[in-house]
């Protein structure tokens, strides 16, 4: 019997979440390469239509687990359900998206079943018969190849945007219902109200021109040059996470995975290194300009035009030029 790859499918508001489809696309590639079978695993309540939709992808089967207790994510019940399935089925690999929900869940699962976990992977390599996983570290300055030295299933979380849903192949897989007895699981975490921080505040999603500022601005007083540039352009001001964390700008101006997603005509990134969490929020800009002192900053990988230099020189000069 061949080995199996399982992919966890997360969903919300009746939709499959994109990072899970990215994980599925990676799972398809790995399964094909290794000659393994691929299975999508979806937990929830009254989610039959989602399972049907997954069955139209190239998978060997869709495992559907429905229970009232699984209607919303809870670490205790999700961990128990997954522990039971993984322990019984013993897949070779269990893939999950590196989304906030799985950052909350994956290590708990790894501890519960005493298996290895490699988080936030951007890809893999085949090393002989084994898979080696590639991940970023040291604030994305370095990559590491990581290998499991533990029993299967190996648990891997995959960085958002590391693969593309465009690679997803269609096919047909049978939906297999699976019932678990979760009645004894005690839910210790009580879910209270959720809210959107940006609601009713600054909406940058429609902005045509954006001047964005990052850690390179160094302190709040220095923001004046950014404001002047934005004014000269008639642009909105946005920020990467460190600027917002330091309270130099309000959170409703944050771009990235924990902030807003924008697609302006022009995105001018000043002193932003380009961590993946930022890039996912602005990569669809029509034209990206990056100003950064570090020639190796990842922002230059996606920018249209780059200036390697000191933003404290370049930005005022640019403002002056635009005013001419």
């Amino acid at each position: 019997m061949s080995e199996k790859i399982y992919v966890l499918i997360d969903h919300g508001e009746g939709e499959i979440r994109t990072p899970s489809l990215e994980s599925l696309a990676l799972g398809q590639r790995m399964a094909e390469e290794a000659g393994f079978s691929l299975h999508a695993l979806i937990l929830g309540n009254e989610i039959g239509p989602l399972a049907e939709r997954l069955g139209k992808q190239k998978v060997d089967s869709v495992l559907l687990v429905e229970d009232q207790k699984l209607a919303n994510y809870d670490p205790d019940v999700y961990c128990r359900a997954l522990s039971e399935i993984l322990t019984e089925d013993q897949p070779y690999l269990f893939l999950m998206g590196h989304i906030y929900q799985n950052i909350d869940l994956a290590p708990k699962l790894a501890a519960a079943i005493n298996r290895g976990l490699v988080t936030d992977c951007i890809g893999y390599r085949k090393e002989g018969d084994d898979f080696v996983f590639v991940r970023q570290m040291f604030r994305n300055k370095l990559n590491a190849d990581v290998q499991f030295r533990s029993e299967h299933p190996w648990i891997v979380t995959l960085q958002t945007g590391a693969t593309s849903v465009d690679d997803l192949k269609e096919g047909s897989g049978q939906v297999v219902e699976r019932s678990l007895d979760l009645s004894a699981v005690e839910l210790r975490r009580k879910q209270l109200e959720a809210f959107e921080a940006t609601q009713g505040k600054v909406d940058l999603s429609q902005a045509e021109l954006i001047v964005a500022v990052g850690r390179g601005i160094k302190k709040a007083e220095n923001l004046k040059i950014i404001e002047e540039l934005a004014e000269a352009l008639g642009a909105e001001i946005a920020a990467s996470r460190p600027v917002v964390d330091s309270e130099w700008l309000t959170r409703d101006r944050q771009i990235g995975s924990s902030g807003q997603t924008v697609s302006p005509r022009l995105y001018l990134a000043c002193g932003i290194s380009g961590a993946i969490q930022h890039i996912v929020g602005m990569k669809n800009a029509q034209c990206i300009v990056a100003i950064n002192t570090d020639p190796n900053a990842p922002i230059f990988n996606i920018a249209t035009y780059g200036i390697v230099g000191d933003l404290f020189e370049i930005v005022p000069a640019l403002t002056k030029k635009l005013k001419e």
Partner: peptide
């Protein structure tokens, strides 16, 4: 302990898309 091992650490290969002025 279910271990994982770092085999290799390296600088990412940068595919610079930007036209550097």
């Amino acid at each position: 302990i279910p271990e994982i091992e770092v085999l290799k650490v390296y600088f990412p290969v940068v595919e610079k898309k930007a036209e550097i002025l």
